[in-house]
Computed example of a mutant assay.
Amino acid sequence: MVYIGYFNIVESKDIINSPYNPRLDSMADRVVRGSILDKDGNVLASTETAEDGSEYRSYPYGSLYAHVVGYSSQGKSGLESTENFELLTSNAFFLEKLSNEFRDEKNIGDNVVTTLDTSLQQASYNALGDNKGAVVILEPTTGKILTMLSKPDFDPNTVEQNWDALNSDPDSSLLNRAIQGQYAPGSTFKIVTALEYIREHADYDSYVYTCNGSITSDGVTIPCAGGQVHGTVSLADSFAYSCNSSFCNIGLSLDISGYRDTAGDLLFNKALPGND
């Protein structure tokens, strides 16, 4: 009984959303897939009907939202995948659903309203240009995702026609670099390094280091950005200038076990709250 309860309460959504679940096919036969909207109600994905009566997904913004919204042919990705169950669930008034059943018509699936901001998404798209990379913009006070962008991109409207080319693309245009790329955190991790140093040194305000533009340890030389020489810096200066050599010096002095614990306190390598 405990296992059944856990399965129904905790694991049910993941099981229902599994591409191996045949129930999804039966739901798609009875429900017109809902739309995906940005925070202002702009349609990012919708179901349209072709002249022959067949249904297809339309993506009005094309490649602008390719990775975060995803596609719904040749499998599913992005929000089309993670919100699959919601898009195929209809919470229409029961009399409306009953009427549709009698008329052998499909019910309309629920819409998914996101926190995405199209103006910010477009600005990020333009700024990234033809470069490979990703842009993510969060609302600091809430954690809402306002922008998620990855390049190279693709047109989700033509995924089925271009599937072979997309799969063999040497630039991996199907890869969402914002969440699927594995990259070193870079200077953002200096926050963790600084916090651990403060925890280990009550007199952290007295920290002084002379930056000569680089630091060498065990035969490895780490330069500051552009080889810039920051001179004599405090901990606050090191952080403000993002001084690589100073932070390497700090990192080499830290207790590795405490450093790891501090990273853990900031939820590195841990499930985020609400996603357990």
Rank of each mutant, 00 (worst) to 15 (best):
I222C: 02
E11M: 11
A28T: 03
F247T: 04
G181W: 08
P140C: 08
T118V: 11
L195C: 02
L37E: 09
T142L: 11
N162Q: 14
N249W: 00
G143I: 10
L37V: 08
S214W: 08
S46E: 15
S168Q: 12
K144E: 12
I36Y: 03
S245K: 03
E101P: 00
L254Y: 12
H201N: 15
A263H: 05
P152T: 10
L95N: 08
D237E: 05
T158P: 00
T47K: 09
K151E: 04
N162C: 02
L254W: 13
L44T: 11
Y204E: 12
D261W: 01
P140M: 11
K151S: 09
V68I: 14
D205A: 10
A184H: 03
L174I: 12
S72Q: 10
T142N: 09
K106I: 13
S54V: 09
Y3L: 14
T193L: 11
V32G: 00
F247A: 01
I16S: 10
T118R: 02
S214P: 00
V112H: 14
F247W: 00
N176W: 09
E48K: 14
G226E: 08
G231V: 06
G34N: 06
S242M: 05
S18G: 03
P185N: 04
S150D: 02
P223S: 15
S242G: 05
S58T: 02
G78D: 07
T82C: 13
E51S: 15
Q121R: 11
Y3D: 09
L235G: 04
G274K: 06
S242V: 07
D110Q: 13
D52K: 08
S168I: 03
L252Q: 14
D117V: 00
L195S: 06
I222V: 12
D104G: 08
L174M: 12
G231L: 03
H67A: 04
S172M: 11
E83H: 14
L44M: 13
D155H: 06
